[in-house]
């Protein structure tokens, strides 16, 4: 599985309250959530994000309240992957569970500039900065996590497993 797109860069400690403010948690419709993604730290995100773009951030991305709405909003906005120096642990697992690819790679997170074109190979963990002609090695997902993401999240993954059992 691969992703490629333009980098949209943020700093450290991007919390779930700015990824999707609580005032919009009265819905779980991904497209509705996507309309308000990042709006409290970046009012332009929604208008500038293109399908396939890659979010790049610093340390502790996704800290704060556990809410699946946060990775859902990012995914529905068109972001194909989040690269960060580190992720908050609950966000990390929520992202896997709803099928948003994320990858930890401090080197890439620090070196990639806003607007760089970046590609990621999830099987190997290799990140290529096409704009800067550089490569970074992230930690690839274990196979079972790749399967969860490929199944569009944990629910899809379990349905697939159950289906296989019944077959």
């Amino acid at each position: 599985m691969k992703a490629q797109g333009k980098a949209i860069k943020y700093g450290d400690n991007v919390d779930t309250d700015v990824i999707i403010p609580a005032r919009y948690l009265n819905t779980s419709d991904p497209n509705e959530l996507a309309k308000h993604c990042m709006e409290d730290i970046d009012t332009e995100f929604v208008s500038k994000v293109q399908k396939g773009d890659i979010m790049v951030a610093g340390k502790n991305f996704g800290c704060g309240s556990s809410r699946e709405h946060a990775p859902i909003a990012i995914k529905a906005s068109g972001i194909s992957c989040v690269i960060a120096e580190t992720f908050a642990r609950i966000f990390y697992r929520n992202a896997i569970n709803i099928g948003l690819p994320i990858i930890e790679c401090p080197e890439a997170a620090m070196d990639i500039s806003d607007g760089d074109t970046v590609s990621i190979d999830f099987d190997t963990g290799k990140i290529v900065n096409i704009t800067k002609n550089k490569e970074y090695m992230g930690v690839p997902f274990p196979e079972f996590m790749q399967e969860i993401i490929a199944a569009d999240g944990l629910i899809g993954y379990i349905k697939k497993q159950q289906g296989n059992k019944e077959a």
């Binding site: 919390d15 309250d17 403010p21 609580a22 005032r23 704060g64």
Partner: peptide, 11 residues
């Protein structure tokens, strides 16, 4: 325990 931007209402 949280004082994030917009956490308790307006940003």
């Amino acid at each position: 325990n949280r004082n994030f931007v917009g956490r308790m209402g307006h940003p």
